[in-house]
Design a protein around this nucleic acid. Structure first.
Lengths: 213, 213
DNA sequence: CCCCGACTGGACTTGCTGGTCCATTTTCTC
DNA sequence: GAGAAAATGGACCAGCAAGTCCAGTCGGGG
């Protein structure tokens, strides 16, 4: 969706086998990058992992490594929201919020200290607007889903009508993001949980008087 | 404090001139790294910026680039908390919290999309425990300061006594961290502000009944 | 003032990695 | 089934950047 500007001319001229290979490269590369980080990952690593040759890499990604990394970034970004479904799409009761919370925690605890997007972003980040666009779009979408969830709560009379849904969603998103970041460094998911739980508590407290911690 | 294990033997045998040069290297390197990111920064860039020679770099950092990056990371980490003083040390009234909030926002808005620590962490990150230790210690200290601030509020009767200071501090720290991260990607400080303000609002709401957005 | 060790300069080596090229095989299309 | 286009294999190249080395200067303590 984002990379669709430059290389989609090729997308058309891809045979079934070609598409399969391309996908294999992207997925394999994603794996390698998650495991050892982009700083030390070479094209040969990816080649080895995906059972491909140098020429294949450049056949499918003519603009070289950056383009490949970008494709991987897009691949990872797509997974982020997918992995939160269907919960993220139905945040209309407190139970669904709790389920979503658990899904998020579970997803990132499983991921451990591998930070596919953060690292990729920093790798390609400054070079082109490409990576930035991917991350920005992801954040926008994510926040939108959260805000919609908060509005659902409001419509169900579960939170105060005076609550600014977008603002709350922004804060919550920041908390998640930071929680994940901290977990990358420390290996501890305490902060992520604290951010999620505190945010939900804040929402709940908006209606009834005092905040139950 | 953290790097003090391996190379401090050298620290002793440093003359005044030597210390000055070493400091110049670290500060200069920090500047270059902030500006162009570690992925594309070479020792020659640092050499040029600091007016030093290759041999000097390796004279002061015998273990090479990694050691230098680690020193820079420590240098940057030290600044993070320093830049929040004296506010971070005196979070006992709502006014002081507000001042601190403004200081944080101002600091990171000025920093823009340069992420000294995040990028450095990812560069050296997985290689050794060194970088990880630096970040972990920074987070620990930061959270501790925030928790102490919350306890000050409690002692002054400004927040609910049932509030878990450490948990709130963890959530707040995550929010800040994520806000900064998002600002790196999008260039927009909305999330950082939302995280800070929402967290403070949550603290205030813990005492009186309903939460004023 | 002199001498040893810290400090500096910069040429050189070396390994690696992204990227190129062309020859060969497979696959689609007519 | 034949020709073209796509897919694949792998040798090869070029540049760059980390790290080495030694020769020369400086500086301070005895």
């Amino acid at each position: 969706m984002v990379e669709g500007r430059h290389a989609d001319v090729m997308q058309d001229s891809l045979t079934a086998k070609g598409r399969a290979t391309r996908a294999r490269i992207v997925e394999g590369a994603a794996g390698v990058l998650r495991e050892q980080g982009p700083a030390v990952t070479t094209l040969d690593d990816i080649r080895a992992r995906t059972g491909t040759s140098k020429s294949q890499l450049f056949h499918y990604f003519p603009q070289g490594k950056d383009q490949l990394l970008l494709a991987v970034a897009q691949f990872e970004a797509d997974r982020v929201l997918e992995d939160q479904q269907p919960h993220l799409g139905r945040l209309d009761t407190w139970e669904s919020w709790q389920e979503w919370r658990d899904a998020v925690v579970e997803r990132y605890e499983r991921q451990g200290d591998e930070c596919p997007l953060g690292s990729l972003f920093l790798q390609v980040g400054r070079s082109g607007p490409g990576a930035r666009a991917i991350v920005t779009e992801l954040m926008r979408q994510w926040q939108e889903d959260l805000a919609r969830g908060i509005r659902s709560l409001r419509e169900n009379g579960l939170v105060s009508p005076s609550l600014d849904a977008d603002r709350e969603a922004a804060a919550l998103l920041a908390g998640i993001q930071g929680g994940v970041t901290i977990m990358m460094s420390t290996g501890d998911s305490t902060h992520l949980k604290a951010a999620l739980d505190t945010a939900v508590a804040h929402l709940r407290a908006s209606l009834h008087g005092t905040a139950p911690v």
